[in-house]
Design a protein around this nucleic acid. Sequence first.
DNA 1: TGATTGACTGAACGGCCAGCCAAGTAACCC
DNA 2: GGGTTACTTGGCTGGCCGTTCAGTCAATCA
Lengths: 221, 221
Amino acid sequence: MARPRNKEDARRDEIVTATLRLILDMGYNQVTLADIAERVGVSKGLISYYFPRKEDVFLAVLEQIVSRLTADFEGFCTADAPAAEKLSKIFTNLFGNQKRARRYYTVVIDYMAQAIRQPEVQEYTQHIYTSYRTYMERIVREGMDSGEFRAVDARRAVSMLLGMMDGLVLQWFFDRDSFDLDAAYEMCVDFTNVYLVPDGSRSDGDARLLASRSMPLSTEV
Amino acid sequence: MARPRNKEDARRDEIVTATLRLILDMGYNQVTLADIAERVGVSKGLISYYFPRKEDVFLAVLEQIVSRLTADFEGFCTADAPAAEKLSKIFTNLFGNQKRARRYYTVVIDYMAQAIRQPEVQEYTQHIYTSYRTYMERIVREGMDSGEFRAVDARRAVSMLLGMMDGLVLQWFFDRDSFDLDAAYEMCVDFTNVYLVPDGSRSDGDARLLASRSMPLSTEV
DNA sequence: TGATTGACTGAACGGCCAGCCAAGTAACCC
DNA sequence: GGGTTACTTGGCTGGCCGTTCAGTCAATCA
């Protein structure tokens, strides 16, 4: 994202990036300051120089993840497209790329486990939900206003959809016998059709939503 | 559950129970052998005597959780009741008690984070999904056979429902601005009605499902 | 040019912890 | 009552790791 203004910021970015990689490779709790220092190619002391507590590095990583996610949503929301297509973009962003999904959830699950006991981490995980909720609710309301969607409780519909998205990825992630991400995508579309699209216009809904699958992705963990 | 056959088994149970408590209190990665020993009231060495590697204690805890969960499902499944009511029991088991839900997911999330990198843990988390999937699929098929439910792809319907259940609890767990567990219960019922119950019999479906909420719980983490 | 600052190093400190083991105790069997 | 087995202790050890800090060096400034 925004290019570092000075040397100090550049170092911070280096450290944050290296740490994210290490979390992916080894898991949150296995990463040591020595690992980070080695990866960046500096001494251990320098990590502490920029981030007084080890915890601070991990919080900076999380902050970066959250801000990238939010930036993505801005893109989806401002696009000029039918609501169903906007939702479809969100699905694709989540389900469209196996490796990316695995990477994203690898860190998110690690951070969730931390969030249970670290209030500062919990605040960030909450931000993630708030982003999803805010933007998806906006899209659903748009759809309802334009008559594309039935008039339902938008907040509740988003909660259900968001729940299904998360829950499906978790199944895919931990249950090898479940399904692939394409199926997860289709199930979200299916739910959208059944729950949001009026009976009359439902039949071609599938085709329209599914047609918009192949699109470029931006968020990279 | 089954009463320990001899002293050795009793000790194992003591250790497993103490460890589960400690995981709840401190989090998976903070629990040390010394903590467990202190909680049980024995020496550190004894823990290693029964469980050679620290990891083995945690696996035993997980095994206990999985077997209790499966036992619960057996109960739900063999009951003589409409399919919708059986599903409702599963929802209630998950959403019916805040403290219990928080405890259950506290350990599950901790174990999920472990499962990413420990294949032995991953196998158990997979068992959890397999249990849910197997039993819920059986219930949905029963419902379809009796005409209570529409003829849909049972496996897919269960994946969606299971996903929603998990995802809703996660939102409730991490997003303080989301909703309470009663709402989560209602959303699952809502989904069941919209997705599984035929249009004709839907109107009283809500009432019937919701009426069966208050029932005794058995699984205690 | 001499002083000051900021980035960075490397070593050392202090604490923690899993695994190991030698020895002690109790129960049980012959 | 002697021997075997099962259980239990608690201290030791070797390694790891976050944090601290005195000191180096290059760039900047006055």
